[in-house]
């Protein structure tokens, strides 16, 4: 028995988000690793902390940390984006229960960000 068309198309959209996020992240991380190795840096060196304000400048200057941080941020953002995609699909389909579930997942992730930021 196959799933309803609406459900399958939602799964296809969610799958696309996962694919695009993964490959974009891996391209950036791969570039960052290549730059890191080319510049003679070791994985055991002290790495610069994440500074969102300097990310664009680091990328423009081809600093490995910029590519690595952006890639890692995309990795971490991909699952919440997948949930947000599902949320929009459930809202369009009028599936309120599943939309509430998706919203609660995003709330838990957001709470993690708030708690992580406030405690650091």
């Amino acid at each position: 028995m196959t799933a309803p068309v609406g459900r399958r198309s939602l799964e296809a959209r969610v799958s696309l988000v996962l694919k695009v996020g993964t490959y974009a992240a891996m391209a950036l991380v791969g570039l960052g690793v290549a730059l890191m190795l080319a510049s003679g840096r070791s994985p055991l060196d002290v790495a610069p902390v994440l500074d969102p304000g300097s990310l664009a400048a680091d990328l423009a200057a081809l600093r490995p940390s910029g590519f690595l941080w952006l890639g890692i941020l995309i990795v971490l953002a991909t699952p919440p984006l997948r949930v947000a995609t599902a949320l929009s699909g459930y809202l369009r389909a009028g599936e309120r229960q599943m939309a509430v579930v998706a919203l609660l997942i995003l709330a838990v992730i957001a709470l993690g960000v708030v708690v992580g930021t406030s405690g650091s």
């Binding site: 991380v29 690793v33 940390s65 890692i72 993690g112 708690v115 992580g116």
Partner: peptide
């Protein structure tokens, strides 16, 4: 994993130089 990884990230528990390779 992303829920806890975000907490690790914000508390300085993720090293990009070790993570990348």
């Amino acid at each position: 994993a992303s829920t806890s990884a975000l907490v690790y990230l914000l508390k300085g528990g993720i090293d990009p130089y070790a993570t990348g390779p």
